[in-house]
Every structure is written in C-alpha cells, then in structure tokens.
C-alpha cells in the first residue's frame, strides 16, 4: 500500500514506514536515544530527499521520546532540571549548527561533513562503549568482582562557578559543563540531523557522573526539547517537514517506544550497552565509509536549491 508524500513528493510503502517507525521507536525507548541516526539513513535509502528525511524524522523523534518520557517520568526517572539546562545549551548549539550546515551546503560539502561526522562520532563513541561494556561483561562471566568504579567525581565539575543543585541526580555542580555539552550536542544534531542521544547518554554517564537510573529519561527529555525546536525551525525556514511522513513514522514510533521502555527493565545494563555499541559502530561505518569508496558516478546532485 503505497502513499504519496506531499512535501517529499515521492510515493513510499506506508506499512514499511510504520514498521520502520516502530523498530526505531523500540530502540529509542530501550536505550534513551532519539534514534535519528538510524532513521535518517534508511529514509534516504528509500528515496526521500535528505532535507525532508532529516526534518520529518525530527518530528518522529519528538513523538517517540515524548512517549517514553511520560513513562519514565511516572517512575521518577527524569531529572527535569538537568534536562532543561542541557536543552538551553542545545538550543544555542542548534542555531549555530544550522548556520554552519547552511554554509557547508552552499560550498557543496554538506554530504562530506555528514558522512565524516557519522564516521568519527559514531565510530569513537561506539568503539568506547563496546570496549567498556564488553570488558565489564567478560569480568562478570569470569566471576571476577566488577572493577571498582572510582566514585570520586572529577574536580573540575566542582571547581567551576555557577553551581546549581540537581536533586534528582544527587548532584551539586556548576551549570557550565552541562550547558557546554548541550551546545555541542545541539551543533551535532543540526549537522547530522539527529537528536544527539548517542552523545548525550555517554556524556551524562562518564562526564557528569549522573546516576544510571535518571540518564535515559533525562536524555529523552532533552531530546524532546531540541527536536521540537528543530522541527519548528525546519518547517518555518525550509518547509521540509512532511506531516504525512512524520505521522506514519510516529504512529509506529510511539508504540515501539512504549514496548522498548518496558523491555529495558528485562535486560542488564551491560548487555544493552554492548548491543547499542554494535548498532552505533555499524551505522557509523556504513555512513562514513562511503567517503573512501570510489563513487560509481563521479557527479552528484548537490541539494540546496529548488529540489
């Protein structure tokens, strides 16, 4: 059953889109990431123009993240204050990122920067997560005691001014690190067209040392704010949000996210992280290696005008 998308101006299989939304929503609810880094490449592969794919899937990310944040919020697993601080940085970052991306596109280097940032960020984060989580998984298998986690938080978290209390995360730290993380994630999300959860989750765990219980919910809460902003900016400035596409995706997405949030309770954190690391690495390699492969056609249409 194919359906014509009014903004993308292509016709695609509707059940396939709902299914895709559901799978990505499930992964989103399970890991606390937006899932944009998975969705955008698949949509482009299906023939949807990249600008429309990126803008419309941001709206899907809003829906699936909202669906799980309501679930996590009831379990008191969202640090709204931390999320708001991160999102404030994220808003600034995404405005900067949109400008950077616009210039890069005019220079014709949009594709390259997207591919390289996928390769670098997903590769590095996936690699780090994989070694770390495999290591702790193996130690448990061998019956060794888990590595003693240095509970001492780095001094720089405390040495900076503008301290703020984050009761849910049991933190009393400067707002500068979270704001900077937010700015960085905001730039990334504008350039790569993703919510940035795959950067945010490790940053909250390893840099801010937030308790694992609130990381996923807080990450999703921050993602809702930035992706809502991205959706409105994209719709207002570029008219690239396809409501038909977004509706199909989010119909599957909200259901998938609920199932994912439920399933997350049944798995061990390390096992989940191994799976997420493998997914992140694979997508990063798949997207990034294109830059090294000799293209079949040396000419490409550069987006950015008309179609």
């Amino acid at each position: 059953m194919d359906v014509y998308l009014p903004i993308a101006e292509v016709s695609v299989n509707a059940p396939l889109l709902i299914g895709l939304g559901m799978v990505v929503g499930f992964i989103s609810g399970l890991f606390g990431i937006g899932g944009g880094f998975l969705m955008a490449p698949v949509l482009v592969f299906m023939g949807i123009p990249p600008a429309v794919a990126v803008a419309s899937q941001a709206n899907h990310v809003v829906a699936s993240s909202a669906s799980s944040v309501f679930a996590y919020g009831r379990k008191r697993a969202v640090d709204f204050r931390m999320g708001a601080v991160l999102a404030a940085g994220g808003a600034v970052g995404s405005l900067i990122g949109v400008e950077i991306f616009r210039m890069l596109r005019l220079m014709g280097q949009g594709d390259l920067v997207v591919s390289l940032s996928y390769l670098i960020f997903l590769g590095v984060i996936g690699g780090l997560m994989l070694t770390e989580s495999l290591g702790s998984l193996l130690r448990r298998r061998r019956g060794e005691p888990p590595e003693v986690v240095k509970d001492r938080r780095p001094a720089w978290l405390y040495g900076l001014p503008l301290k703020m209390k984050f009761p849910r995360s049991r933190l009393y730290i400067s707002v500068i690190p979270p704001v900077l993380i937010g700015v960085f994630v905001g730039i990334l999300s504008a350039v790569m067209g993703v919510g940035g959860g795959f950067v945010l989750v490790p940053a909250m765990v390893y840099l801010l040392r937030m308790p694992a219980g609130v990381v996923v919910g807080t990450s999703l809460f921050q993602i809702i704010i930035t992706t809502s902003l991205v959706t409105i900016l994209q719709a207002g400035r570029n008219q690239t949000v396809d409501l038909m596409l977004a509706t199909l995706l989010l119909f599957g997405g909200v259901i998938g996210a609920q199932l994912g949030a439920r399933a997350s309770a049944r798995f061990r954190a390390e096992e989940l992280r191994v799976v997420l690391a493998v997914i992140v690495l694979l997508v990063g390699l798949q997207m990034g290696l294109g830059v090294f492969v000799t293209p079949a056609d040396p000419f490409v249409l550069a987006p950015g005008m008309g179609g």
Binding site: S67, T231, L243
Partner: peptide, 24 residues
C-alpha cells in the same frame, strides 16, 4: 506547509507530543 510554515511546525510538534502522551 508553504503558506503558514511556523503554524505548521507548531502543529507538527503538538501532534507528536500528543500522540506520545496518548500512547503512554
């Protein structure tokens, strides 16, 4: 989408958050 782009964007976000809430 082309005549009232900002309202369209807000509607898209409301729709998304609403359906997320509905599903939960």
């Amino acid at each position: 989408a082309h005549q009232r782009p900002w309202a369209y964007g807000f509607l898209a976000v409301l729709l998304a958050i609403g359906s997320g809430y509905g599903a939960s």
